[in-house]
Design a protein around this nucleic acid. Structure first.
Length: 289
DNA sequence: CAGCTTACCTGCCGGC
DNA sequence: TGCCGGCAGGTAAGCT
């Protein structure tokens, strides 16, 4: 499950290894990953064959490769997606979905391959999307983005009545925060995920954002070194998980701060983990204002 | 229109 | 052994 730090590692690897390459051939092995492309698999291949890749960019967990005609290949790794740069004679991966044969600047013929077991992810051609694909203009910047507006985020967060975990996962407020990092940021801040946004103090909101940024930054620092190889090969198994998680996945284990067993509750068809002592369940909003 | 739920997808794992 | 339900989760679409 690639979180934002892993996606950024993929982006950096793609920028380094496919920029300047020309797409000689496109092979779509499964329709689902190109479902968002209106022209279907054949249109997808036709629109990309012969194009030159100009770089690799990212907004939240979306990636795009600007092309020489102003379009872009827009992609999302979903839950299990990988973008691999492989020598052309590498045997097909079990879940290989799309293969781009590259003719390029580096010696040796290489493929760019989209591999995805569960196919929540996908690729599409974004017309005119080289600068910023119109399909993702609603996606907010992420906390590691230098242009992320802290004050605007804090102000918006504090106007919303939803629980703050739901808000952390709202891509129009902030991107790149998944279930794991949301739980970790809340644990560090000592906030329960069901506390309404409009019941946070400004200081709490600022601290929460800071902690989200710290968690993601630490993961990026660790992941960024281990994947700096010749080929982009990120499988989502971040070594960061085992070492540094305080809440996520630790049901019944003692809280690293106070020793109280971590609890797990269902939330949005998934799980939330929290310390019931450090992150007390908020009192219900009173009926009258 | 904010808020919330559901669908999408496959592999793994525990229970029977 | 093999089947089956539950679980994992980012995002968009479709409800209220």
């Amino acid at each position: 499950m690639p979180e934002l730090p892993e996606v950024e590692v993929v982006r950096a690897g793609l920028e380094r290894h496919v920029t300047g390459s020309t797409i000689a051939l496109v092979e779509v092995l499964h329709d689902r990953p190109v479902r968002r492309h209106p022209g279907g698999a054949s249109g997808f291949a036709a629109a990309l064959t012969g194009r030159r890749i100009e770089g690799a960019r990212r907004r939240g967990k979306y990636l795009w490769l600007p092309l020489d005609n102003g379009d872009a290949i827009l992609g999302h790794l979903g839950m299990s997606g990988q973008l691999l740069v492989q020598p052309v004679d590498t045997p097909a991966e079990r879940h290989l979905r799309v293969r781009f044969a590259l003719a390029g600047t580096e010696p040796g013929r290489r493929d760019l391959r989209f591999v995805d077991q569960r196919m929540f992810g996908g690729l599409s051609v974004s017309e005119g999307g080289a600068e910023l694909p119109p399909e993702i203009v609603h996606i907010a910047r992420d906390p590691l983005d230098p242009e992320f507006d802290d004050d605007a985020f804090v102000a918006r967060l504090r106007k919303r009545t939803s629980g703050v975990k739901r808000l952390l996962l709202d891509q129009t407020l902030v991107s790149g925060v998944g279930n794991i990092y949301a739980d970790e940021a809340l644990w560090r801040t000592g906030l329960h995920g069901e506390r309404p946004g409009d019941r946070l103090t400004r200081a709490q909101a600022v601290a929460l954002l800071g902690n989200a940024r710290t968690v993601m930054g630490e993961a990026l620092a660790q992941g960024g070194t281990s994947f700096d190889a010749l080929y982009v090969n990120v499988n989502g198994e971040s070594g960061y998980f085992d070492r540094s998680l305080h809440a996520y996945g630790r049901e019944n284990e003692p809280c690293d701060r106070c020793g109280t067993p971590i609890r797990r509750v269902a939330f949005m068809n998934r799980s939330s983990y929290f310390c019931p002592r450090c992150q007390p369940v908020p009192r219900r909003r009173s009926a009258r204002v």
